[in-house]
Design a protein around this nucleic acid. Structure first.
Lengths: 225, 225, 225, 225
DNA sequence: CATGAATGAGACTTCATTCAT
DNA sequence: CATGAATGAAGTCTCATTCAT
């Protein structure tokens, strides 16, 4: 009875199952790919891009070398995806917090908190610590373009701050560079197991720059070189 | 016949000549060694340690590979000597300016000016830009020890400043890190041909940190994370 | 209930269906296997045996690699089957046209027409163009034996021609080689889309060799080397 | 006494020695490079380009793999140089025998003798036997251009022959193809140790085509396909 | 002191082939 | 029957480093 119908329903069921299993598979695939990237990011950070070998990564994941190549194209591709992902994550996080009505100093602080949170991530640390000279000229160009965008964004906020009076600095460009430098330096000494959380570190840095941006001049003039 | 005399008289002259030529040779040797280091520093900075080959360096100097090896022990040795030299230069420059009677903020500023001057040198840029992960564990350890000394020196100055009231900051360690980060970041974008001189860059950075260290609190409390 | 009856009655039907489906399956199987061979032949011809990968073939057929392996044993097996098939097709075609009463020159022409028709087939081109050095020593030996058979057949026809006076040549062996060379060369430049059909090409070649085999000597003696 | 002069003469002598030794060195270098090419040509011919490994070549020369790379750029480069050299040799040989006043049939014969002599050389066999599909698209294009030049030259000679009456054929293009095919086929079965010399082989082939080009039509019309 | 030549070690990458489902 | 995933084996190429002259 209902053979046909049963078939029909089963077909539907099958399709659903197939879909689901395809979904699961895709999910698994993505999860593994991401796992490779995370593992690689840590190894690149620890050993440097060139001393790290695909075998290191494979061994850390307890798979064989070609398995890695099933998920990625080349060693350089791994680094490019890590850094791209870090910047994509950053972009994503920033886009969720974009209240342009706040005073510039607040926007700057929010930006830095988000930036700092990302930069102290596995991907972020790799981005900050591993030289982009390991990438092909092409990839490097793409990456630098993306990075520059964020720098530009910060500079624009600082410029806004000079207009709305919330950020009082002489040289917006230098202020931005110093701020980036201070934050980008953190991954060099940050260890997840240390006493300070990523957020606390950023807070400390922000306190410094907030004060530097606040009213109140430098008491003594700078001595000549 | 005359052979002995000739030998005798000429021997003195020869010795002098030899001495002089030995001197000259030593001088030449040092000069060439340094030339190798400078060339290598630029190439390491431009290409990264691993993409730079001994052949690159040899080609830039228009000599052959073994010639390089006549002056240095290994590729890693080059990097180690570059970084060591940078730190030695720094030490040298600091020792010439060490008036401990000045207020801490002044001493900090003097330190930073000197540090900045060195870090924007060929050797210094290489030190800041090329990862020490390219070194052997041994060399790296030595280098990190040296680096840490300078960090400690700065931290001590900042601590002094908190005591003598010339540097008003919450967290001396974080302040030092931020300062180092800001300065160490400069080599990433600094180009000798740009509009700003090394000194001007350091001045700008110092202005920021000087203000951050001056009296006068942050007007608004920090927003929660 | 009724399960048995249903089973019983349907069993007959099922068997028929199974038989038919088994037939169909076999047919399908063969069809697919042949499709794989044809596709592979084209890809081998275009890319060369070694640059062609199983993935290329799979992609061209829009199936996955293991599917290919369901139909064939190994990559080398594909090439062996292609070439064997080409020679089998040739044998088949020749056996359908084997009137031994004709003058040798006619038999030679018929042979060449058939040979040419096959050699400008997908399989034939692959046979002529892809080096048998890609095969295992064993397979190669088998293949060469088969090939040599056809060469022998031609040589025998030429020899017959020298006896019956229909083929006037000095050196039967060299004549055969030249003839084979001229025909085997065609796949190198033949393109199905060109202005000449396979038959026209063979006709042209045959015209040349027919004249070379006809009466009438060379007017001038050969110049010395 | 004469120290200076002696120095001067010695310097001259030294220079001469240096020059000579530099010459010798260059000569040695070229000789070795050529030896690599010859060895590789044989191995490529025997094993096919892809089954032949750099290790095979190195082993045959009793050197290590990187030594090969000291003389050549890449495996493909070896093949390209072999084939280029073969064609260059051909060009060279042809340019030494270029009497355009001769009847076309004579020029054709001379061309074929030279072509045959080269094509049965180590380099020539490799050129004829190893597929140019192993080359990069770029190199292949260059090679095919060169090859086509020679084909064009032959076709032109045949065309001339139709005008001056020394070559009587219906289709110059097909005649050229057949001729090339016959000759290019020889390397497939030619073995230096066989009874026939390269020249004898070419002579045999030429006798065939000479007759095909001579006066005297085909006695019977071609049978339809 | 300097050079051409050579080498050992190792890295990335590819691919035919096979499981487990 | 077909698929995604995994792997073993191998090959090309690079490069720091060292001889012999």
């Amino acid at each position: 009875m209902g053979g046909a119908r049963r078939t029909a329903t089963e077909t539907a069921g099958d399709k659903a199952v197939l879909w689901r299993s395809a979904d699961l598979r895709q999910e698994q695939h993505d999860k593994k790919r991401r796992l490779i990237l995370v593992t690689a990011a840590r190894i690149f950070t620890d050993l440097g891009f060139h001393k790290a070998t695909i075998d290191h990564i494979a061994a850390a994941l307890k798979v064989t070398k070609p398995t890695i190549y099933y998920y990625i194209d080349s060693k350089e591709d791994i680094l490019f995806q890590i850094t791209s992902q870090a910047l994509a994550d950053l972009d994503q996080a920033l886009s969720e917090d974009n209240d342009t009505t706040l005073p510039a100093i607040e926007r700057l602080e929010r930006f830095c908190r988000i930036y700092g949170r990302i930069i102290l991530t596995d991907f972020g640390i790799c981005l900050a610590v591993v030289s982009d000279r390991s990438l092909s000229p092409d990839s490097r160009k793409k990456l630098r373009l993306l990075k520059k965008e964020f720098e530009t964004r910060v500079r624009r906020i600082v410029d806004d701050g000079r207009k709305d009076g919330s950020i009082l600095v002489d040289d917006a460009r230098m202020f931005s560079f110093a701020l980036f430098g201070a934050i980008n330096w953190a991954p060099q000494w940050y260890s997840g197991s240390g006493p300070l959380s990523a957020d606390e570190i950023i807070s400390s840095i922000l306190a410094i720059f907030r004060k530097a941006a606040a009213a109140g001049g430098v008491p003594r003039p700078l001595a000549g070189a």
